[in-house]
Design a protein around this nucleic acid. Structure first.
Length: 294
DNA sequence: ATGGTTGCGCTGCAA
């Protein structure tokens, strides 16, 4: 079962990237953030093309800002908008969380508040929001994956230059402590413990992507029961390239055998015909191939 | 350069 999460920065603007990406990567469960749509607009724009691709979907949004969605081809049960005890910002409950049971797993699509400045009410809101989410998740099912834009870089390795972030949000002790307090496993980092420049977000401005000056703030945090099933975990950096990208790249996690031994939906081969069929790579430059050295 | 870009929805604000 393939799970993906992607902050699309407007589902409407990203449709020309999102739909072909779904066809190419074939995720079974997709968590979207920053759709910036109302539920009515999501229904009008996306439900028909998603149905054609085999997805059920659920959306939670008020338009303008925020907005989260779940897409699934492996069931979409017990959909919940917001979470119990979710804090408000200045009297408003923002559309930043939706969860459902997909393929036997409780999946959350989350858009954690940005925090803006450390000395702001938005930062306090961010910390409260993460604390309340941890309590809500702790009282939920054991098999869980929190997927989304956490707006926290877990460690200094997740930043292009730690010195550039001193005094800013996304890197402070309290933010990182709230992420750690979930007691869940950051499955991409667990899969690539030594990787550097493994980013999921690059600011649109000043050629940050071109210079590979990014951050890893889009995470899949999973219970050990789920993390033990991870066969692959990676950031789809190619989706940040080209025309009209989001400023975030998707995160993709493949789970192998389910706990009951059912292998579940099999991920089809890539649609790219040049790669389909497993054509052998050309020999490496300087390779002697199978020649026997005398 | 107190900068840069994108999106929303009107004009400045959020990211």
């Amino acid at each position: 079962m393939r799970i993906a999460t992607w902050n699309v920065n407007s589902a409407k603007q990203r449709m020309p990237r999102l739909l072909p990406w779904l066809e190419e990567r074939r995720p079974d469960v997709v968590c979207l953030q920053e759709t910036k749509l109302t539920d009515a607009a999501f229904d009008e724009l996306l439900v028909a093309p998603l149905t054609d691709l085999g997805y059920e979907s659920a959306h939670h949004g008020h338009g303008g800002f925020n907005g989260v969605a779940l897409l699934s081809r492996v069931g979409l049960g017990d959909v919940e908008r917001d979470f119990p005890g979710q804090p408000q910002y200045r009297g408003v409950t923002e559309a930043r969380a939706i969860s459902a049971t997909c393929g036997g797993l409780r999946v959350h699509s989350l858009y954690v508040p940005n925090g803006r400045e450390v000395d702001s009410d938005h930062y306090d809101y961010k910390l409260e929001w993460l604390h309340a989410l941890a309590a809500a998740v702790a009282s939920g099912p054991e098999d869980v994956a929190l997927c989304g834009d956490m707006n926290v870089a877990p460690t200094a390795t997740d930043l292009f230059d730690p010195a550039a972030f001193v005094g800013h949000t996304h890197v402070t002790g309290p933010e990182r402590e709230r992420i750690a307090a979930f007691g869940l496993i950051d499955v991409v980092r667990a899969h690539w413990p030594e990787a550097v420049r493994m980013f999921s977000y690059w600011d649109y401005r000043a050629g940050m992507f071109h210079q590979d000056l990014g951050m890893r703030i889009d995470l899949v945090l999973a219970s050990k029961s789920v993390a033990d099933r991870v066969a692959a975990a990676w950031i789809d950096r190619a989706a940040r390239k080209g025309k009209a990208p989001s400023d975030h790249a998707p995160v993709i996690v493949d789970l192998d055998t389910a706990p009951d031994g059912d292998i579940g939906p099999v991920v089809p081969p890539p649609s790219n015909p040049r790669r389909a069929g497993g054509a052998p790579l050309p020999p490496r430059r300087g390779s002697r191939g199978s020649e026997v050295t005398r």
